[in-house]
Design a protein around this nucleic acid. Structure first.
Length: 424
RNA sequence: GGAGACGUGUCCGAGUGGUUGAAGGAGCACGCCUGGAAAGUGUGUAUAUGGGAAACUGUAUCGCGAGUUCGAAUCUCGCCGUCUCCGCCA
């Protein structure tokens, strides 16, 4: 969440940022400033009275110790008079505290100055496009035909077992999936990311800390009996490793990676967007997360972009990099680069990675900080990215690398699939 | 799931209603000592929030939340977690 100091000191900046992010309820900014002022007054009143009561209580203790019972009793009577007022002040303070917290948590992050103005995906800025788009004149089947032809994925079977959007990977399809996950993790760990295998359900505190709650309440699968949420991305458990943690300077930068399945309800999606592997309720993804000192975060963001780009290049896929406009960015992000891979049979770009700098938006909620060499507590910035989301990568590999004689998979996968692995 | 025990600062560990934000020890940091190191020794060593330019200072925090009390780490209730035993089980 945004720091309250920002509202006190840089109101105009907050307003401009929210506008760029296409956030409609701008009036909340004034409400927050008002509530903050009321809260501070309430705290001062509460603290002053508490100080009086505390001092008197100590004196009562001292008098009792000296055996001056009567004086102690008299003072007790006196202090007791403050009781109702003290309770009222406390209640008021905690109410204002809660209210302020709720207000702050409902506001999205502010966009970085380089974020393009815009409301729709069409207004995202293409910063780079690379990789040759294959010539599919000989054969141009969409991946849902290829997966059926080569018996790699059974969508209907998934429908039977669970419902739509839960495909079953079979035989070589399953092995290819496993190979891609392992390759992505190896690639990440070779660049200094430490691997974690986290839980696939999280509690509400974790979902709040990374910003899924309250913003995306309806998008996550919820288990009401235990109040757990199925993770929509590994970002949630991976980032929450550092909730309520004060790191030392030597531990930085934090660079971690993890594979998890991801679960998304995707209510309201339909049509060609959900065909085949394009959009699923359960899919696999390998994630990278970094926690770094604030001054380094934008340089680290570029590093992460280059990291993901290297992975796509090694898979020999045509891709482009977008800088998302204010209206298309996620709730928690300050700057996001999306990676899209060209699906040559569908003739459309599919998002396969999203790399974001959250600045201190998540770390504020997380209470993740570090102690510098002088022992002073300093804020951190958090960043994350997909490296990579599996289904669309699989779809593009199948489509782009199809030939009349089968699928010609990229050479980097040979160590993971074996030299004799052929889809034909 | 049932029964019992327990949950204190970076760690270990005291503390069962009164100057306790919390004894003592370890660790860590800095200083002294040393040719250098170890040992020894001195000092320091939580977080959040409010006030203040700062020094400093108010308040809150002993798993979490509520309650009793002039006063709670200490008493009561609820929740969460850990350990042991039993049950079940991949």
């Amino acid at each position: 969440m945004l720091s309250i100091q920002l509202f006190r000191q840089e109101k105009e900046l907050v307003l401009a940022g929210l506008q760029k992010k296409n956030f409609s309820n701008i009036a909340l900014v004034d409400t927050i400033i008002e509530v903050d002022e009321l809260r501070r007054i309430a705290q001062q009143e509460n603290d002053a009275l508490a100080a009086i009561v505390n001092a008197a209580s100590k004196e009562i203790g001292a008098l009792m110790g000296k055996g001056e019972k009567e004086a102690a009793e008299a003072l007790k009577q006196q202090v007791a008079q403050h009781k109702d007022q003290a309770k009222a002040l406390q209640a008021k303070l905690s109410e204002l505290d809660t209210k302020l917290q709720e207000l702050l948590i409902s506001l999205p992050n502010l966009p970085h100055s380089s974020v393009p103005v815009g409301k729709t995906p069409e207004e995202n800025e293409v910063v780079k496009q690379a990789g040759a788009i294959p010539d599919l004149s000989a054969q141009k089947a969409p991946h849902w035909e290829l997966t059926e032809q080569y018996n790699l994925i059974d969508f209907e079977l998934g429908n039977k077992i669970t419902g739509s959007g839960f495909p079953v990977y079979i035989d070589k399809g399953a092995k290819l999936q496993r190979a891609l996950i392992t390759y992505f993790l190896d690639y990440n760990t070779s660049k200094g990311y430490k691997e974690y295998y986290p839980p696939h359900m999280v509690n509400a505190d974790s979902a709040y800390a990374t910003g899924q709650l309250p913003d995306k309440e309806g998008q996550m699968y919820h288990m009401p009996e235990d109040n757990f949420y199925m993770i929509p991305t590994a970002e949630v458990p991976l980032t929450n490793i550092f909730r309520d943690v004060i790191l030392t300077e030597q531990e930085l930068p934090i660079k971690i990676t993890g594979y998890t399945p991801c679960f998304r309800r995707e209510a309201g999606s339909y049509g060609k967007d959900v065909r085949g592997l394009n959009r699923l309720h359960q899919f696999d993804k390998v994630e990278i997360v970094q926690l770094v000192p604030t001054a380094q975060s934008y340089q680290v963001l570029e590093e992460m972009v280059a990291h993901v780009e290297g992975l796509l290049q090694s898979l020999e896929l045509p891709y482009r990099i977008l800088r998302l406009c204010g209206g298309d960015m996620s709730f928690a992000s300050a700057l996001t680069y999306d990676f899209e891979v060209y699906s040559a049979a569908q003739e459309r770009w599919l998002e396969v990675s999203s790399v974001s700098n959250f600045e201190n938006f998540q770390t504020n909620r997380l209470k993740a900080r570090y102690k510098d060499a002088q022992g002073k507590i300093q804020p951190l910035h958090s960043l994350n990215g997909s490296s990579l989301a599996l289904p669309r990568i699989l779809a593009c590999l199948l489509e782009n690398k199809q030939t009349p004689n089968g699928i010609e998979l990229p050479a980097v996968l040979v160590p993971y699939l074996g030299a004799n692995f052929k889809i034909q």
